[in-house]
């Protein structure tokens, strides 16, 4: 840094031990051109390929299944009685390297019980313009609320449409599930939910 004017170039360390101009080197044999016959074989390759089965998949009409563990769109899962698994802890958002997830948690109240336990995810957004489908959010999720589906058709015409809200991400209500909010299964704690003791909704959970 002392003499900036001439330090644009790094001076080589010239060693006089070895004169590199006199170092022996061997000429490496280059493979060179192939024989005419070998070159003509290339024509046979392209010719015979014409009669082989094509690799193309006629995509919109034919949809080949993806690999089993393909990273597709996310899904927010539910407990077997319909309550959401998400507890609004934001670990997924913190784990996200692309800053694609936004979570706002809120407290469960007796008349608005969305998930077992104290907290639930009030706002849950994933921005698919940013998401890189790395799956770190899935690994971060403590309640297995967030998983990935095999769905890959994620194209749309506006930026806003590609920010998926909680409604878009929540899994469907299956048989035996009740739409939240509703009270927890009678006599069960959030630990029971976590351990999988709740198998289906209890009739008393239904809000008339």
């Amino acid at each position: 840094m002392a003499d900036q004017n001439e330090s644009n170039t790094v001076q080589p360390h010239i060693s006089n031990d070895v004169d590199i101009t006199s170092v022996a080197y061997e000429k490496v044999d280059q493979p060179g051109a192939k024989s005419l016959w070998a070159q003509l074989q290339g024509f046979w390759v392209t010719f015979i390929t014409m009669f082989k089965k094509v690799n193309t998949v006629q995509y919109p009409e034919v949809k080949e299944p993806t690999a089993e563990r393909f990273h597709g769109r996310h899904q927010l899962n539910r407990h077997p009685d319909g309550l959401e698994k998400c507890i609004g802890c934001e670990l997924c958002a913190w784990a996200c390297p692309a800053d694609a997830i936004y979570v706002e948690g809120a407290d469960n109240t007796p008349d608005n019980q969305m998930s077992p336990g104290e907290r639930y995810g009030k706002v849950y957004q994933i921005n698919y313009l940013r998401c890189v489908f790395c799956g770190l959010c899935i690994e971060a999720c403590p309640t297995r609320a967030l998983t990935m589906t095999n769905e890959y058709e994620l194209a749309d015409s506006t930026r806003a449409k590609l920010i998926f809200e909680k409604d878009d991400l929540l899994g469907p209500l299956r048989a035996g599930m009740l739409p939240p909010p509703h009270p927890m299964y009678p006599g069960m704690t959030d630990t029971n939910y976590y351990n999988g003791d709740v198998k289906e909704a209890h009739p008393s959970q239904e809000i008339k």
């Binding site: 644009n8 170039t9 790094v10 001076q11 080589p12 360390h13 010239i14 590199i20 101009t21 080197y25």
Partner: peptide, 17 residues
């Protein structure tokens, strides 16, 4: 090519080499 390479390293600046 070899002579050119040698000259590059022998003439002053390693940065240019």
């Amino acid at each position: 090519q070899r002579e050119q390479a040698v000259n590059r390293f022998r003439s002053g600046s390693l940065a240019g080499a």
